[in-house]
Design a protein around this nucleic acid. Structure first.
Length: 363
DNA sequence: TTTTCTTTTCCTGGTT
DNA sequence: AAACCAGGAAAAGAAA
């Protein structure tokens, strides 16, 4: 993944894989036809890739949403005159929270297609689902996570923007006479999209911070995990090394809850790099000490460790463990030692994607 | 299925 | 004393 692992780059790759290059061209003339609504400003340039390309739908602007819609109108040879485009004045966040019914009401039969395509994009981005999970977690244990020792208690941008974000007012649904009711309350996410909001959802991909009853049972009762937990008390010292988490039966039991495609792991150093590269997602977690040299510092080490644990579905991650993994990078020259400075690391020659040039080239 | 790689977990001991 | 650093050892689990 060298050189291409920044968040939007990953996403771009996924989308590239889904949409063939020849299909990616947005139908300019259709956009012009659609642009009747004053509020809808259309993308000015017609580049090879549409504006929504390479970005999480969650973060699409209104214009990007419109462009994406027009792309699918064109692709499906749908009669655009049947669509009330004044209802398309929504950003990506709102779009992601539309139910199939809502989309069907606005777009007719195309609504189902749009819904499917949208959540195809979202669900395929497992590497990024941690961001969405975090954005989704309204009352997530962010209070715990972000209340690091000595921290101010200020919530990070990671946890706050979506739940607290005012939703745009969308035109009344035909026959409904009111704005989308669902949009003003509970975010509506389909199962298995990586956007699930409910802690009870079948495949939330959420954290272990609030484990479901199944997991609680697994962790607390019979089975070899319990024996390993905190050492085998009965027999004095525990065995060295990583304890087995689940017995076969328990693992099988858990597997039924998992999505079919297990997420491909982002490496730890990439996770760290992506946090650093996205200041909007990195309020007070880490900072660059020397951007050019790739020197960075953990500001809230335990919070970062918790995030990493959340991404890896491991609620027991600590900075102690994370830092051990970081130290393994020294040998591989992914990181370089920074002597005498606590919580400070430096990217090494075998890391990539963090240099300003690389970031700019990607744009 | 086997091998390899990347963590994860635990540990001892040292430093700030 | 607490938090952090260093690195050995062993194992899990994912990827090749």
């Amino acid at each position: 993944m060298a050189g291409s692992c920044e968040i939007s780059n990953i996403f771009s790759n996924y989308i590239s894989a889904m949409y063939q290059p020849e299909e990616a061209q947005p139908p300019v003339e259709l956009l012009a036809h659609m642009g009747k609504d004053d509020n809808l400003t259309l993308p000015a340039e017609t580049t090879e890739k549409p504006a929504w390309f390479g970005e999480l739908p969650y973060f699409w602007s209104k214009a990007q949403v419109l462009e994406w819609i027009s792309y699918h109108v064109e692709k499906n040879k749908y009669d655009a005159s049947a669509i009330n485009f004044s209802c398309c004045n929504m950003d990506g966040y709102t779009l992601c929270h539309c139910t199939p019914e809502q989309l069907r009401l606005i777009f007719g039969p195309l609504g189902d297609e749009l819904y499917a395509r949208l959540h195809e994009i979202v669900s395929v981005s497992d590497e990024l689902s941690w961001i969405i999970d975090l954005l989704e977690k309204e009352d997530m244990s962010s209070q715990e996570i972000f209340l690091d020792s000595g921290a101010s208690g200020k919530r990070s941008a990671l946890a706050t923007p979506c739940p607290s974000r005012p939703l745009p007012c969308i035109c009344p649904l035909p026959g409904a006479g009111s704005p989308f009711p669902a949009l003003s309350s509970t975010p509506l996410c389909p199962p298995g999209t990586g956007m699930s909001h409910s802690p009870n959802s079948q495949d939330s991909g959420g954290s272990d911070i609030d484990p479901d009853p199944t997991e609680v049972k697994l962790f607390s009762s019979d089975g070899d995990f319990a024996d390993y937990d905190k050492g085998d008390v009965k027999h004095g010292k525990r065995k060295r090394g990583r304890p087995r988490k689940f017995s076969k039966e328990n693992r099988d039991c858990l597997e039924t809850k998992k999505s079919k495609h297990s997420p491909r792991g982002t490496h730890l150093w990439e996770f760290i790099r992506d946090i650093l590269l996205h200041p909007e997602l990195n309020e007070g977690l880490m900072k660059w000490e020397d951007r050019r040299e790739g020197v960075f510092k953990f500001l809230r080490s335990e919070a970062v460790a918790q995030l990493w644990g959340q991404k890896k579905k491991n609620s027991s991650m600590t900075y102690e463990k994370l830092s051990r993994a970081m130290r393994y990078y020294y040998k591989r020259e992914i990181l370089e030692r920074v002597d005498g400075r606590r919580l400070v690391y430096k990217f090494g020659k075998n890391s990539s994607g963090w240099k300003e040039e690389e970031v700019l080239n990607r744009k």
